[in-house]
Simulated scan of single mutants.
Amino acid sequence: MKIAAGDWQLELAPRRGGMVRALTRRGRNILRPMPAGSAEPFESACFPLAPYVNRISHGRFEWEGTVYTLPPNHDGQRHPLHGTAWLGAWEIEAHGAHHVTLVHHHKAGADWAWSFTLHQTLHVSPSGLDARLELRNTDERTMPASLGFHPWFCRREVTGIAFDARAVWLADPDMLPTATAAADTLGDWSRGASLERADLVDHCYAGWDGTLRLSRKDGDVLLEGYATPFLHLYVPPEQDFFCAEPQSAMPNAVNMEPPVPLAPGATSGIAMRIRSA
């Protein structure tokens, strides 16, 4: 399925994982395009994170007096990762030339003990992409809930990125957060910095101000997050992509800084915009 407006075009895989397959501006890749025929989320251009973001340490956490243990949910991962929605089935609820709304229903089970419904709305305008997530607790119990987007940006045209945050979470060898440090510990992104580096960055920035600028040879692009005070930055050495993930919570949040409880029938939402600067 494709939707488009002006210079922007979005291609998505609406049934599996709510995945975006490609996002282009004037025919040039803004997000890394997904290989033809692939159904692997780690090869996608973007997917939603819900009802938790990033990793939960060994899948174990306590919530309202009960201990829960989640199994690993992807090959090669020691810890459950990115929630359940990115691996689940979705339905098309509404669509038009410029927009689509997808819905995912989760039934309580071993991978997440609470039922919920997640809506993802994608809208393309002449200025770019607007994406929204809304999660509704359809269970009878209060649940922890956090949301995020996982865009994989095409790195080829990008000469640097710039953003402001209050601090960065340092991480152990499993990339689980351990302690906060000054935001410029891994590089002064506030001044703008190149992505060409020998070390791996896979860290969460707290107190993100909601804007990241991608300096591109064909015209700058802005990533903007709403209700997303955390930005997870993933910059692997010598790859043709990087990830900048707007999130409502940090990795392993249920064991570190638990999210606000989501009551039965209540909703929580975030938004992301990728647009021309």
Rank of each mutant, 00 (worst) to 15 (best):
R213Y: 10
A5L: 08
G76T: 08
N73H: 14
L135Q: 00
G148L: 03
A249N: 13
A181L: 09
P72D: 00
E43C: 02
T180K: 13
Q247Y: 01
F241K: 05
L135C: 06
E62I: 08
L222H: 07
E257P: 02
E11Y: 06
Y68E: 03
V260N: 00
V235M: 01
G128S: 02
G160A: 09
L49Q: 08
G37P: 10
F42E: 14
D75G: 15
G192W: 13
G225D: 00
W208T: 03
P35G: 12
I30W: 09
Q239D: 15
D209A: 07
T117Q: 13
A4E: 15
G148N: 02
A85V: 14
K2Q: 15
R25M: 03
M250F: 02
P126G: 00
R132E: 14
L12Q: 06
H150V: 02
L176M: 14
C46K: 05
L233N: 05
V221Y: 10
K217R: 15
F163W: 04
L214V: 10
D202R: 14
Q120A: 09
E140G: 12
L176P: 07
N73K: 11
A45E: 08
A162D: 02
A94I: 03
R136H: 09
T84A: 01
G210W: 04
R26W: 04
H95K: 15
E40F: 11
T142W: 03
G160P: 05
W189L: 15
R60K: 15
W90H: 08
E224H: 02
P237A: 02
G65H: 07
V158R: 08
D218K: 00
Y205K: 08
F241R: 07
I270P: 01
A249Y: 09
F42I: 15
M1C: 09
P177F: 02
T180S: 11
P246H: 04
A50W: 11
V260E: 10
G37Q: 06
F242S: 04
R21Q: 12
L135W: 02
T69W: 10
Q9A: 15
W152L: 05
W86D: 03
P261F: 00
P251C: 06
L231Y: 10
G17F: 05
Q9N: 11
T159Q: 13
R136G: 00
L147N: 06
G65T: 04
M34T: 12
P236F: 09
L212C: 12
L233I: 09
H58T: 09
L129Y: 07
T24N: 01
T159L: 10
D75R: 14
Q247G: 02
G109T: 13
H119A: 14
C46Q: 14
G109C: 11
V124I: 06
C204I: 07
G65R: 08
R197V: 04
P151Q: 11
L223K: 05
L81Y: 11
E93D: 15
G128L: 03
W90F: 10
R136F: 02
P72W: 08
L262F: 12
T101Y: 06
A271C: 12
L233W: 10
G269Y: 10
G269N: 13
A45N: 07
P261T: 01
F149V: 00
G160V: 05
T66E: 14
R216S: 14
S248F: 04
F42S: 14
F242G: 04
E257W: 08
R15S: 07
F230N: 13
P14G: 06
P237F: 09
E62M: 09
R28A: 14
P177D: 01
L223Y: 04
P261M: 00
S115I: 02
G128H: 01
